[in-house]
Amino acid sequence: MTLKRRHVLLATPLALAGCGGILAKQPYVARSDWPLAPPPPGSGGVAGGRGVVLVRGISAGPTLSERGLITQLADGSVHVGYYNRWATSPAQATTAALIAWLQASGRFAAVVGDGSALTPDVIVEGTLDTLLADPTTHVARAALTLVVAKPVGISERPLAQRRLTATAPLAGPTAPDLVAAQRAALAAVLGQAVGMVVRAESRRG
Rank of each mutant, 00 (worst) to 15 (best):
H138C: 03
L132F: 10
R5I: 14
L64P: 03
L10Q: 09
P169G: 09
L146Y: 05
S77R: 14
L132H: 13
P38R: 05
T165S: 14
T2D: 03
A87H: 10
R183H: 04
A188Y: 01
A37C: 13
R141Q: 15
M1I: 00
I22D: 05
G115R: 02
S105F: 02
D177L: 07
A149T: 09
S77A: 10
G172D: 15
R107K: 11
L23E: 12
G195N: 14
P62A: 02
L144Q: 07
D75R: 02
V179Q: 00
Q72Y: 04
T167W: 09
L144W: 13
V112H: 06
G153P: 11
G106H: 02
S202I: 01
P90T: 13
G191S: 11
A87D: 05
G68F: 08
T95F: 00
S116K: 07
P38S: 14
P13E: 00
K25M: 14
Q192D: 12
R183C: 06
G21F: 04
L16T: 05
W101A: 03
P173Q: 08
A143D: 08
S155E: 12
Q72L: 14
H79A: 01
S155A: 12
R183Y: 06
H79V: 00
T136W: 04
R204W: 04
A24I: 00
V197A: 05
T71K: 03
A181V: 07
A166D: 01
T127E: 06
V139E: 12
A140Q: 07
L73N: 06
G68A: 03
T88V: 13
A47D: 13
L64R: 05
L190T: 10
L186W: 00
Q72R: 15
S116Y: 07
A60F: 11
S202Y: 00
A96I: 02
D33P: 07
R31S: 06
A143S: 15
A184S: 15
V194D: 06
P38C: 10
Q92M: 15
P13S: 08
Q182N: 13
P13K: 04
L14C: 11
G44N: 04
G57L: 15
G42P: 06
P176T: 04
L118W: 02
H138P: 03
S89N: 05
T145I: 10
P151Y: 07
G126H: 10
V111F: 04
L190W: 14
P135C: 03
L190M: 06
A140L: 04
D134L: 00
L164W: 11
E125M: 14
R203P: 00
A60Y: 10
K150Q: 13
